[in-house]
Write a protein that binds this DNA or RNA. Structure first.
Length: 272
DNA sequence: CAAGATTCCTGGTGGC
DNA sequence: TGCCACCAGGAATCTT
């Protein structure tokens, strides 16, 4: 899916259209996503949107009755703001018609996404949001975060930083990109990476995610911003999806291998 | 407990 | 053009 930059891009795109409006109608065309959309989502009708927040790759829509919507885009999901008259596409599963006469439409071909209605309490306490590591762009993500996560673990460093218990939001694209920026080979055992290199990696993760957000995220196939436009960070990827292409720094062909069941890319000269 | 494999679902791509 | 194997941005849940 959408990794953290794409979810944050979506949040920023939705925020000005959604906050302060009332959900006039909730339309569910298909309930069987990764989890079944609960019937109680109908109770969101008539509620006003107080805020739209992001935690990890989840979006939380706070409503004025204390309930909230919890949305995850899975691997192929997107949320767009459109006129309600726009024809429904094959994989448009949910529509939230707003009092402003616009509609937020959830589209997800692979249906790995999630749309839940939480009737009350703290959304952050929901089981899906428990056991999550720190936000990479917040102050509680520090080199100590990675030092602790990597101690006594022999898994590749790339797999370690993709573990949401280590730090959230680092998906397959940005894991490869962050390791390139930090000049670390992705298959280095996590417990063999020195603290000074983990320090570099901490900063690299922050930088690559921030840079991508500034470009509206990365569009490979499915991802679209809430205005229907793609994100442009793909043009700034150093290694991801560039197998055999010349490294943008040293011209050495980019290498590719499967690591932790996921495609991984690196420059054998720039990364040690 | 750590590590690795499997699973959910659909669509795009590339080989033949 | 058609068929088919394979791959895909996530993450929970198995097995080893």
């Amino acid at each position: 899916m959408p990794e953290l930059p794409e979810v944050e891009t979506t949040r920023r795109g939705l925020e000005p259209h959604v906050v302060g409006t009332t959900l006039r109608e909730v339309i569910v065309r298909r309930r069987d996503l990764r989890e079944v959309i609960p019937e109680s989502i109908a109770q969101a009708e008539g509620r006003r949107v107080l805020a739209i927040r992001r935690r990890s790759k989840y979006l939380i829509v706070d409503l004025n009755d204390g309930s909230s919507l919890l949305i995850h885009l899975g691997m192929s999901g997107s949320l767009r703001v459109i006129p309600p008259s726009e024809p429904w596409k094959k994989h448009d599963h949910v529509g939230l018609t707003l009092s402003s006469d616009l509609q937020v439409r959830f589209h997800d071909p692979r249906r790995f996404g999630i749309v839940l209605h939480l009737s009350g309490g703290d959304p952050l306490a929901h089981p899906l949001l428990g056991n999550l590591g720190p936000e990479p762009l917040e102050d509680d993500f520090t080199v100590e975060t990675l030092v602790n996560a990597c101690a006594k673990r022999s898994i590749p460093i790339k797999v370690a930083i993709m573990d949401a218990k280590t730090v959230v939001g680092v998906g397959n694209i940005y894991a490869s990109e962050a390791l390139f920026r930090a000049k670390i080979l992705p298959d280095t055992p996590a417990n063999a990476v020195s603290k000074s290199r983990l320090k570099r990696l901490t900063q690299a993760i922050r930088d690559v995610l921030s840079d991508s957000i500034a470009e509206g995220g990365t569009t490979l196939r499915d991802f679209l911003k809430s205005d229907g436009e793609p994100g442009y960070f793909r043009q700034k990827l150093f290694v991801y999806d560039r197998k055999d292409e010349p490294c943008r720094v040293c011209r050495t062909p980019i290498r590719h291998a499967v690591m932790g069941q996921r495609s991984t890319y690196w420059c054998p000269k720039c990364q040690k």
